[in-house]
Simulated scan of single mutants.
Amino acid sequence: MNLPQEKLFQHVESHPYPLLFATISGAHLYGFPSPDSDFDLRGVHMLPLETVVGLDEGDQTVEKEGIYDGLEIDLVTHDVEKFFRLMLKRNGYVLEQIFSPLVVFSTPKHEELKSIAKNCITRHHAHHYLGFAATQWKLFAKESPPRVKPLLYVYRVLLTGIHLMRTGEVEANLITLNVSAKLPYIDELVDRKRSGPEKGMLQAADLEFHKREYERLTTELESAYEANKLPEMPSARDDLNDLLVRLRLQ
């Protein structure tokens, strides 16, 4: 994938606070960007010490949009403490950001965080993906005509959850996930999404088939949750606390 690294880094570099990392999320991470897809960047910033020890809450979340020669870039970051607290919950989204292979900006502490994040993965992350898939399916099912994009999000979320439960590894790329899942219709759906909006619609007759597949994969994820041997609770709290203190004091 050819990434406009200079423009992406230019957007990240203008962030008002020091960053721990910034990675690419969204359709580019999931493996099915369209030619006109904007870039969704996600990351972690570090508020200054005088802010976090004072009475003001500070910018817990920073959202920053920009357009560079027609390329839209959206950057959303959380303060490091807020992000670490999300890691200790069953939030697969933040783990996907940490482990995204599409890195725009990184630091040695980002590499340390990847190591710690492995101990945040629990069997209950299945609930995150089950809930996320149900929400995406509702969005897809109520559209008329139905679009390929939200359907791909449904499959991406379910396959990510199944893979996580079976391997303990975070993988968000639908093309990579389908190497083992072997769903014969995924490549065609991805090609239609990448081809643009004129091919991004589905026939009403396809709905019943995809409804059965959604229900089947949901059951498969539920079964993987019941069978997996991942920890019940994260064991990374002390390591995250230690890293947070060092980041605040550096």
Rank of each mutant, 00 (worst) to 15 (best):
L86E: 08
K114Y: 01
V80E: 10
A133C: 14
P184R: 04
H128A: 01
F32W: 02
L75V: 05
P184M: 11
H163R: 14
F9A: 07
G196C: 00
H45E: 09
S14L: 15
D38I: 03
F209G: 01
V62S: 12
K118M: 10
K82D: 02
L240M: 08
T160I: 08
V12M: 05
A227S: 09
L41A: 01
L41G: 04
D56F: 14
T167C: 01
L49K: 14
Y153C: 05
L244S: 09
A205M: 09
H127K: 04
A133Q: 05
Q203E: 12
R237W: 13
V154P: 00
T107H: 12
V94D: 03
P101Y: 13
Q203H: 12
T218C: 06
S106G: 06
E6Y: 07
F84M: 12
S37W: 09
K193Y: 06
L71I: 13
G131L: 01
P101E: 07
K182E: 08
M233P: 03
R194L: 09
N241F: 09
Q10I: 11
A205S: 15
G26L: 14
H163Y: 15
V157A: 14
E57K: 13
V76I: 11
F32H: 06
L19S: 07
Y129I: 00
Q250V: 00
S34H: 04
G168V: 01
S195A: 15
S106N: 15
S235F: 14
V80T: 15
S25A: 15
R147T: 03
S195E: 10
C120T: 13
L207P: 04
R216N: 09
N178F: 00
D206S: 15
M87H: 08
L29P: 02
H11F: 02
T107D: 05
R237A: 01
Q203C: 10
Y17M: 08
T167K: 15
F99Q: 01
L244Y: 08
E188L: 09
L47S: 10
L152Q: 04
S235Y: 11
L249V: 07
L152S: 03
L243A: 11
H28S: 11
P4N: 08
L202V: 06
A227L: 10
P35A: 12
Y153E: 05
K142W: 05
S25P: 03
H128R: 04
S14F: 15
Q250F: 00
Y30F: 13
P101N: 11
L47P: 10
Q60T: 14
Q250S: 09
V44P: 08
G43C: 12
R192G: 00
Y185W: 15
N241Y: 15
A133F: 00
A224E: 00
S34G: 11
D59M: 08
G26I: 05
E171Y: 00
M46T: 14
K149N: 05
Q60L: 13
G66L: 06
V80M: 13
F32V: 10
D69C: 13
T23K: 11
M46W: 06
V52M: 05
E112F: 10
L202S: 09
N173L: 12
I175L: 07
R42W: 04
Y30G: 00
I24F: 02
V104C: 09
G168L: 00
I175E: 04
D40Q: 10
L20Q: 06
F84D: 02
V52D: 05
E188M: 11
V12R: 12
E215I: 00
L3Q: 08
L247R: 05
Q10K: 12
